[in-house]
Design a protein around this nucleic acid. Structure first.
Lengths: 203, 203
DNA sequence: AAATTTGCCTAACAATTGTTAGTCGGATGG
DNA sequence: CCATCCGACTAACAATTGTTAGGCAAATTT
């Protein structure tokens, strides 16, 4: 093929779109913007994708599946509640930092999904939240966690890990593992200093 | 004045816009949408406001000023670090729940501010974050807080309180004070159960 | 070698966008 | 009572939007 053939892949389109969606938002990013980022014309995009909504759909559900898969894995393998929660947080942080563009879209732009997809998406999101809650639940039953408001604790934890997306930079000093560790430590121990006088106090 | 005179105020426009901006986002809400919500024509809006950007500007900076004012007040009055942090969290929660529409716009839509305003806005946001960090800093110096990564702890706290905006409903069961209390408790104590055998342990 | 498919292009469309111009009746102030 | 102003209106604009039609050359298949 000639000089005009660039053999753009669907994944390239999705990646370029995700980058733009993160920068300017879904509705403010035009098909021409996406095309320009790939050095092609807007019409050419339609040889690879159905329409603009499909791009958002792919990004949101691709990310949703990654999260679902991770929490399922954790719930299958690890036993202890604290360990489970730490692994769940770690995986969450890894997925977010792995692709900040797509996870930004997943976190911010899902509201622009067409109504039909929107319902499916929110269902997946709720399921993920429920799985997370179950871990905290287990911890309370096993008497290793305080009997806090489960739903509330989970919302706090998830908001903390999701917020990473706002400040994380791949070239930064902090590795995903360190971030996950600090969040986990904070979630477990809190801010207040433990004034321990008993040598038998643990942990 | 005749039947066509509805005497719409600037505040009414801003409130209607905030509601729409929360629902559909800034760029997906048209001037005609805003006008329709007020039962007037799009052109009529321009007798009260300069342009669409001004509406976003008003919402974002109005909210920013409320937050700045609250943290300044806390830093002026309260002495103890834990008390300071609790009050700061309480005020933050109150401001967010007081007007969920505007705070949703403040939290999500500020990216659409014109470049000039955007810089000012981010400056205010950073100042607020700094004030918050100072409280945690004090707590560590006073030896009542664990020597955690300050910046990191603050990001976790702020993300938790901001997330309220996603699920809070004014008609819900939880009052702002309760929410603030639970967040504060979680922030202070964390999730892990304190196994205390010493009766002198506190708290 | 012929026929088809692939991957891009140009051109154009209808709809929607923010915004401006100009109008007009009623309220207000001298 | 006259002049001005206020607060809405209709009409229109230029630009931008997502998307489609149709073409054309290179690559692939038959």
């Amino acid at each position: 093929m000639g000089e005009n053939i660039k053999n753009i892949s669907k994944e390239q389109i999705v990646a370029a779109a995700a980058k733009l969606f993160k920068q300017k938002g879904y509705t403010s990013s035009s098909m021409r913007d996406i095309a320009a980022a790939l050095n092609i014309e807007a019409a050419s995009l339609y040889h690879h994708i159905k329409n603009k909504e499909e791009i958002l759909d792919i990004i949101c559900f691709d990310m949703a599946k990654r999260f679902s898969g991770a929490i399922a894995e954790v719930n299958d393998i690890y036993f202890n509640a604290e360990e489970k929660l730490r692994k769940a947080i770690l995986h969450h942080v890894e997925i977010i930092t792995e692709d900040i563009d797509k996870s930004a879209v997943f976190l911010r732009e899902w509201r622009s999904l067409p109504e039909n997809s929107l319902q499916d998406f929110m269902l997946l999101r709720n399921q993920y939240e429920t799985e997370f809650t179950r871990i905290v639940e287990n911890g309370i039953e096993e008497d290793v966690f305080e009997a806090v408001d489960k739903k509330f604790a989970v919302l706090s934890i998830l908001s903390s890990v999701n917020w990473i997306n706002e400040w994380y930079q791949a070239d930064g000093k902090m590795k995903p593992q360190e971030i996950a560790q600090r969040i986990s430590d904070f979630v477990m121990g809190g801010l207040r200093k433990k004034l321990v006088t008993d040598p038998h106090y643990r942990p």
